[in-house]
C-alpha cells in the first residue's frame, strides 16, 4: 500500500516536472503559435487556382507535399522500403521459390465465413483510401497497408494452402510489385520523356505546367481535381506496397522447419 502511494506520487512529480520544463522552454524552443512561413506557403499554393504555375492541383496538402513538392524524397523512401523487402526476400530466397504443401485446416468455419466477407470490405476500403489520396487524407502507402491485411487474414484463417490452390504464387506477386515500382519511376519522368520527344522543356517530377514548361499532367478528372501525377503515384504505390507486404507475409508464415533450413550450416561459418 505504502509502496503504491510512493510510486504514484513519484510518477506525478516526474510528470509535473517534465510539464514545467517543457512549458518553460527548458527542453528547447516552443513551437510558434502561428503558422510558419513554409507551412503557409504550402497551404497557399497547393490548390490555388489563381497561381496554377505553382500549384499541385490537389486540395490534399499532405499528398501534394509528399508526392509533388518533395517527390524525390518520397521516391527514395519507396526505394528504401523496396530494399527492405528485397533483403527479407533474399534472406529466405530458397523458401520463397518452393511452394510449401502444408495441409492445414485453418480456423473454424464461422471465422472463415466472416473473414471472407471482411476481406471484401478491406479491399474496398483500401482502394477508396488509395484512389482518394489526392482529395482526402490517405494515399497509396496507407491504402496498400490496409489492403495487405486481407492476404494476412486469409493466410492465417484459411492456411497457406489457400494461396497455393488459387495459384497466387511468389513470382506473380513479385511481378506485380516490380511492375508497379517501374510504373512509379516512369510516372516521375514521363513528362521529361515527352519533353524530349516533342522538343518542349520539362523537369523530373514535374506535375503541373510551370512558367517555363507547358507540359502538364491533367489537373482535373471528371468532376474532381486529379492532382495530376499524384493520382498515379498513389495508385502504383498502393499496388507496390500491397504486393510487397503480401510477399513478406507469405514467407514469414512458412513452417518453422522450412525457415530453419535457410540457416543450416551457420555453425560451420558459411
Amino acid at each position: 500500500m505504502l509502496r503504491d502511494l510512493v510510486f504514484a506520487s513519484l510518477l506525478v512529480i516526474i510528470i509535473l516536472a517534465l510539464t514545467y520544463l517543457t512549458y518553460s522552454g527548458g527542453l528547447g524552443d516552443l513551437p510558434p503559435r502561428d503558422v510558419r512561413v513554409i507551412a503557409s506557403n504550402y497551404l497557399n499554393l497547393t490548390y490555388n487556382q489563381g497561381i496554377t504555375w505553382l500549384w499541385a492541383a490537389s486540395p490534399e496538402a499532405v499528398t501534394a507535399i509528399v508526392w509533388d513538392y518533395r517527390g524525390l524524397d518520397t521516391l527514395f523512401e519507396t526505394v528504401v522500403f523496396y530494399g527492405a523487402i528485397l533483403a527479407a526476400l533474399t534472406l529466405f530466397r530458397s523458401v520463397s521459390k518452393v511452394p510449401e504443401f502444408v495441409s492445414s485446416a485453418g480456423l473454424s468455419l464461422v471465422v472463415k465465413r466472416v473473414t471472407a466477407i471482411v476481406t471484401l470490405a478491406i479491399l474496398a476500403v483500401a482502394a477508396s483510401t488509395a484512389l482518394h489520396g489526392h482529395l482526402t487524407p490517405g494515399g497509396g502507402f496507407q491504402g496498400g497497408a490496409i489492403a495487405s491485411v486481407a492476404p494476412l487474414l486469409l493466410l492465417v484463417v484459411f492456411g497457406k494452402q489457400f494461396f497455393i490452390e488459387r495459384r497466387i504464387s511468389y513470382s506473380k506477386l513479385l511481378t506485380i510489385r516490380n511492375a508497379s515500382l517501374a510504373l512509379l519511376g516512369f510516372t516521375s519522368v514521363a513528362l521529361l520523356i515527352l519533353g524530349f520527344l516533342t522538343g518542349f522543356q520539362a523537369y523530373i517530377f514535374q506535375n503541373q505546367a510551370k512558367t517555363v514548361s507547358t507540359l502538364s499532367y491533367p489537373p482535373y478528372l471528371l468532376d474532381v481535381p486529379l492532382g495530376g501525377s499524384l493520382f498515379f503515384f498513389n495508385l502504383f504505390e498502393f499496388l507496390a506496397v500491397a504486393s510487397g507486404f503480401t510477399l513478406v507475409f507469405t514467407i514469414l508464415l512458412s513452417r518453422d522447419e522450412t525457415l530453419r533450413k535457410e540457416l543450416e550450416g551457420e555453425e560451420l561459418g558459411y
Partner: peptide, 23 residues
C-alpha cells in the same frame, strides 16, 4: 463492395461512382 466503397468514401460525385464501379 460498391456499397462499402461509397459509404466509406462518404460522397457521391461522378468520380466516386466511376472509380467505385471499377474497384
Amino acid at each position: 463492395s460498391f456499397v462499402i466503397y461509397v459509404v466509406y468514401t462518404g460522397s457521391l460525385r461522378l468520380y466516386d461512382i466511376v472509380t467505385g464501379v471499377l474497384v
